[in-house]
Design a protein around this nucleic acid. Structure first.
Length: 898
RNA sequence: GGAGGAUUAGCUCAGCUGGUUAGAGCGCUUGCUUGACAUGCAAGAGGUCACUGGUUCGAGUCCAGCAUUCUCCACCA
């Protein structure tokens, strides 16, 4: 470790070295320690396909701040990292890479494909975590996990089998969201709605019995081949004569019934709806109610069905393997094999030729798309595995209502409840290979379904050995839902699990509450009987300089690695946490980063100043016996800041916390204390400057600790160069409030002197007197001692040549400055413009009078005096008193000048 | 259709449970080679806290309404 500080702050020169130093020291490692309280965060696992982006930087920074603070506060603080296999995203990338080589999944076969996927994981899985390290994350890498590692996979199987045995997982034909591009079902949460320009096609269906035509509007004419009914409302007067009649489906000339169903809304359109149970969620419901056949006309990869598909269906039927709700399949004839969009065109053309297309109207509507590839979702009836949500959602709602898990900020609870209360069963099977394969086995002989953690040797029903495992894998989020406990050893009752679980804080963005947070809550309650974490700390997203979402298509993304390279991780971290309140979005800006970097530079130089003074004197890092007023002042402020910072952190107000540290360092320590101390370092005797150096050093040490969770690198780098105990600042004690460092009187004394300094500077500045031109200062005050002790500061900081203090002076023709506690004369004869000075004094007099009027108004108000708390009333009273005094002094000054 | 943010200085944002002379950073003006820092120091200008009501002794802060804007959810023949 460096023993001295370089002349300039250059983060790139030491950040990596510091990280290595922490790793070598094993400082991130947490143990189950019965003498300490546990504090646990599990890291939201980034996708193995991921590149570090600014959103990660925010998420990780917040977690690192919390974990470093708790660690320094004496907790056994575990931050458990890991990565997610991201089934659909990873598989898509691999398939894409293979496509470029002209290889398909089927060419390769499942096993070879998985080998390739694991190769991919080995190659890229480490990339994201390497990038994370650049941020300074202090997570326990020895416990790094992967959602598909042995332990997590075991937990997945355990959960699946358990839920199946309890009847909470079932398999069946249901309406699901199908992505024809990814070729898999996806869950409701994975559908994103996008506004699209579409059309209404008004089609005429002929009624068999009466010969009249019914006008039916649809946004998807290609689905008409799968119509198995048209619906009307039973109360609709217009159509009462049609109850029990039929229509002839155009193009197919197929006779289908007219049914009555509440889904048909008399107010909307013509009041007649075509019903396609296989390809529309609402129609599916109607089909169930009216016992309609389900006819599938799309293949799963987005084409119209044909003879082949019918054949496959017939074979299944012949075997007697048709499950409940298994859709029939239609040979779409001339449309068979067409992409659905092409079929739409062809069908519209044919209907036009028949004269059965009445009109086409433009229409904008929200269309469901796949959240990964943004392909339009095709609702399909398909055989999938589902989690029955009702029994799981109930306790998950209660746990948050009871505040077993709290959301910060609280308002996100509503989003959670809204989702949980309207939740439908969760489709968990995916037609993908990369992921946890569903532990269900089917007997080829008797059709028995066996769900078990281990591959069964033989069928428990018929005894044969012809069992095949389900081809599908589980939704990625099924395994992430177990993350808080699967990573700690569950289902085994490990020591870690017992000590670190339930975890404390989950830090994540609001965009992921449904996908992940909600599912962790109900999974944890179901399987561990406890909530997975006590607090969900929600943050917003990082937007670009113009407030837009960062996106690949806009190309407005900011690469955190570039920012770190240029300004350092500390500046990036500070920028991400400053001036932000929980749950709100953050706007990235280069200016903000620069400001943060300047702050780091400021701290660096202040530390260099301390070094310049202590290096030749073997100064001990402890407080001296005798403390001067300004020492007590800074210590008292420090104490107060430490108290508040801890309180703010406790409440997850990280932005407020860091703001206070920032102000203390820059305004109090650098701009005032260091300047005060210069007077002692350069003018006083030996003893005084030694004690000054001690306090200077002590406070610097405390500052570095306070700031360390936010800016870990620079604080460690500096800390290592100053006298200290312990190996790393990471494990030093975080400053807290200590009653013995409360010095209210000294604080007041210093404030009096500081006010005088500011007032003198102000006057000099207004009169454009350069600092080089010193002037004698007379201070008339009741607090003679305070100002006598403070005169050295006034000389140094207010460009005074000499200071005289007494309880009054009789001076004419001087500039007069009045503070709350003193009347200050600066005889700058030749510079004084009497008129200007009079004007200024009168202006000030007006201002003070206005304030006094305010105070007095309050005091005259009976309601205020009788109802406001005594402390508030006293405060206003004291204020009014000061104001009256000040008015007296200013008036006297005006008199004297006249 | 439902829900939730946001609205405070030229810009970007803080302001916790109601009590300050409403704050910060950037930008702006003026002065300064001040014994670490010009990535700096000092002084300053700039705000009827979107709007309208209400509660209260007292409202940027609580309540109701309204406007603008963003987001989420649901629906959409």
């Amino acid at each position: 470790m460096a023993k001295e500080l370089a002349k300039n702050y250059k983060p790139s020169e030491f950040e990596d070295k510091i990280y290595d130093f922490w790793i070598e020291g094993n400082y991130f490692h947490a143990e189950a320690d019965p003498d300490k309280k546990p504090y646990t965060i599990v890291m939201p696992p980034p996708n193995i396909t991921g590149q570090l982006h600014i959103g990660h930087a925010l998420d990780e920074t917040l977690q690192d701040i919390l974990i470093r603070w708790r660690r320094m506060s004496g907790y056994s603080a575990l931050w458990l990292p890991g990565t997610d296999h991201a089934s659909i995203a990873t598989e898509a990338k691999i398939v894409e890479a293979m496509r470029k080589e002209g290889v398909s999944k089927d060419d390769l076969g499942r096993e070879k494909f998985l080998e390739r996927a694991w190769d991919w994981k080995r190659e890229y899985g480490g990339r994201i975590t390497t990038q994370l390290r650049k941020l300074g994350v202090s997570c326990d890498w020895s416990r790094e996990r992967f959602t598909m590692d042995e332990g997590c996979s075991d937990a997945v199987k355990e959960v699946f089998v358990k839920l199946y045995n309890e009847g909470k997982i079932y398999r069946g034909n249901r309406m699901v969201n199908w992505c024809p591009h990814c070729n898999t079902s996806i869950s409701d949460a994975e559908v994103e709605y996008e506004e699209q320009q579409g059309h209404f096609w008004h089609i005429l269906y002929k009624v068999q019995e009466t010969g009249e035509f019914l006008e039916i509007a649809t946004t998807r004419p290609e689905t008409m081949l799968g119509d198995t009914a048209v619906a009307i409302n039973k109360d609709d007067e217009r159509y009462k004569h049609l109850h029990g009649c039929h229509v002839i489906l155009p193009l197919l000339d197929k006779v289908i019934p007219i049914v009555c169903d509440e889904h048909a809304d008399m107010e909307k359109g013509t009041g007649v709806v075509k019903i396609t149970p296989a390809h529309d969620p609402n129609d599916y419901e109607v089909g169930q109610r009216c016992k309609l056949p389900i006819v599938r006309v799309f293949t799963y990869d987005g084409f119209m069905t044909g003879a082949e598909d019918v054949k496959a269906y017939e074979e299944l039927k012949a075997k007697g393997n048709l499950a409940e709700n298994e859709p029939e399949v239609l040979d779409c004839g001339k449309y068979a094999g067409m992409a659905t969009m092409d079929a739409r065109k062809a069908i519209v053309e044919d209907l036009t030729a028949l004269g059965q297309l009445k009109e086409v109207k433009p229409h904008t509507h929200d269309v469901g798309t796949c959240y990964r590839c943004h392909t339009t979702i095709e609702p399909m009836v398909s055989k999938q595995w589902f989690v029955r949500m009702e029994p799981l959602a109930k306790p998950a709602i209660k746990a948050v209502k009871d505040k077993d898990t709290k959301f910060v900020p609280e308002r996100f609870e509503k989003i959670y409840f809204n989702w949980m209360e309207n939740i439908k069963d969760w489709c968990i099977s995916r037609q993908l290979w990369w992921g946890h394969r569903i532990p269900a086995y089917y007997c080829e002989e008797c059709g028995e379904v066996v769900v078990a953690k281990e591959t069964p040797e033989k069928c428990p029903k018929c005894g044969c050995t012809h069992l095949t495992q389900d081809e599908d894998t589980l939704d990625t989020w099924f395994s992430s839902a177990l993350w808080p406990f699967s990573t700690l050893g569950w289902p085994n009752e490990t020591d870690d699990f017992k000590y670190f679980y339930p975890t404390n804080t989950l830090v994540t963005g609001y965009d992921i509450i449904f996908f992940w947070v909600a599912r962790m809550v109900f999974s944890a309650l179901e399987h561990t009987g406890e909530v997975p974490f006590d607090t969900v700390f929600i943050h917003g997203i990082v937007r670009d300089e113009l407030g837009r979402k960062m996106s690949k298509s806009l190309g407005n993304g900011v690469d955190p690695l570039e920012v770190i390279e240029k300004h350092g991780a500390d500046a990036l971290r500070l920028m991400l946490v400053t001036g932000n309140s929980p749950g709100n979005d953050i706007r990235y800006s280069e200016k903000k980063i620069e400001a943060c970097s300047n702050f780091a530079n400021k701290l660096w130089n202040a530390s260099r100043f301390v070094h310049m003074n202590i290096d030749d004197h073997e100064v001990k890092n402890e407080l001296p016996e005798v403390l001067h007023t300004e020492d007590k002042w800074i210590l008292s402020l420090l104490n107060y800041v430490a108290k508040e910072v801890n309180e703010n952190l406790e409440k997850f107000e990280l932005g407020i916390a860091v703001q206070k540290v920032y102000e203390f360092i820059w305004d109090c320590y650098c701009d005032w204390y260091i300047e005060f101390v210069k007077a002692r370092l350069f003018f006083d005797g030996e003893e005084s400057f030694l004690s000054a150096e001690q306090v200077l050093l002590y406070v610097l040490d405390q500052i570095l600790r306070l700031l360390h969770p936010f800016m870990p690198y620079i604080t460690e780098q500096i800390w290592q160069t100053i006298p200290h105990e312990g190996e790393t600042i990471m494990l030093s004690e975080y400053p807290t409030y200590k009653p013995e460092f409360d010095f209210p009187e000294e604080e007041t004394e210093m404030l009096r002197v500081m006010e005088a300094i500011r007032a003198i500077r102000n006057r000099r500045s207004e009169m454009n007197v350069p600092p080089s031109r010193k002037a004698k200062v007379y201070i008339a005050t009741k607090f003679e001692n305070t100002f006598k002790t403070g005169s050295a500061f006034i000389i140094k900081l207010a460009s005074a040549s000499e200071v005289e203090v007494a309880d009054s002076f009789d001076i004419e023709d001087a500039v007069t400055v009045v503070t709350a506690d003193a009347k200050i004369y600066i005889p700058l004869d030749e510079l004084v413009d009497k008129e200007a000075e009079l004007q200024r004094l009168n202006k000030e007099l007006d201002q003070v009078k206005k304030r006094l009027a305010q105070s007095e108004g309050k005091l005259k108000n009976q309601g205020f005096v009788s109802k406001a708390p005594a402390a508030v009333v006293d405060k206003v009273r004291a204020q009014a008193e000061k104001e009256r005094e000040k008015i007296g002094l200013i008036e006297a000054a005006i008199e004297a000048l006249k």
